[in-house]
Design a protein around this nucleic acid. Sequence first.
DNA 1: AATATTGTCGATCAAATTAATAGACTATTG
DNA 2: CAATAGTCTATTAATTTGATCGACAATATT
Lengths: 157, 157
Amino acid sequence: MRTLSKRTQYALRALYALTRRGSDQPALIGDLSKEEDIPKKFLEQILLSLKMKGLVDSRRGRYGGYVLAVPADKVTVGSIIRMIDGPLAPLPCASESNFRKCDECPDIRFCGTRILMRQVRDATADILDHTTLADVCKKVDAARLEAEQGEELMYYI
Amino acid sequence: MRTLSKRTQYALRALYALTRRGSDQPALIGDLSKEEDIPKKFLEQILLSLKMKGLVDSRRGRYGGYVLAVPADKVTVGSIIRMIDGPLAPLPCASESNFRKCDECPDIRFCGTRILMRQVRDATADILDHTTLADVCKKVDAARLEAEQGEELMYYI
DNA sequence: AATATTGTCGATCAAATTAATAGACTATTG
DNA sequence: CAATAGTCTATTAATTTGATCGACAATATT
């Protein structure tokens, strides 16, 4: 199946970084690019498009940079993916947000693949529409903590 | 996000057709192509590759054609998608069947996107690995029946 | 006002993937 | 042997995705 595009992967990484940093100190494209290992010019494009959608905000000139424009616990990963890659559904005809009938399809009611993929979409949306940027960052923190404790245990043994 | 390839969509359509037909009467590529509206030469390729994987069987010459090589209730849609499109996961690093670390990833344990996409993969696999060709055909039949009853009701009113 | 800094924006190029087609060949039946 | 139908490799076409270029515009500091 098709994978999350690099574009979306980069966007998410950048947004996690903005989340961790907080809205008080703007992040430079250049810094994000280095720290998160994202091609700079590509990241420019991505952040710009996210700004147009109102997800981030920016200032030019010295002390400029990017910040989240929305609280990290109000932005779901599902909404971000939809902004960039489009619908979550594996098929346009199984999409809730952007339904589109296949050209050759005689009757969508009797398309088995669509019925199935609709289930997949629902399960996917159930996860991604209920997970925010803040949630993801929390999960990563938890994983870090767990790893640290594991290491301590190693020393102890 | 992740679209099923045409290749897989065509494969599934053809396999539903073989399921409905049963193993006693082989289906011709040409017929399948017309009935299911699939480019003939493309379908050839697809069926051939499915044959190599042991999913269908074929005979050449007069009275030849394709049949399912495995009972329709023993073949999951998940396994078919994996054969053709590859892993169900939205990211290689979230795949169970074909895991692959991203080149730039410093530590997969702390990748938020991966943690999330692993959940999505699990939910997807839960559905697709528990739905067989026979199940899909049954669902379509049920939808047909329901639609008929709906029409009858319309006449009644 | 001048300068350095940093985001903006449209265009374009390159690479990869996916979709589709071509054509010569082989097996099977009658 | 002739008609039918699948086999197989290669190639082409189309689309999508990833990435880069370069000129421009706003902001802060001196």
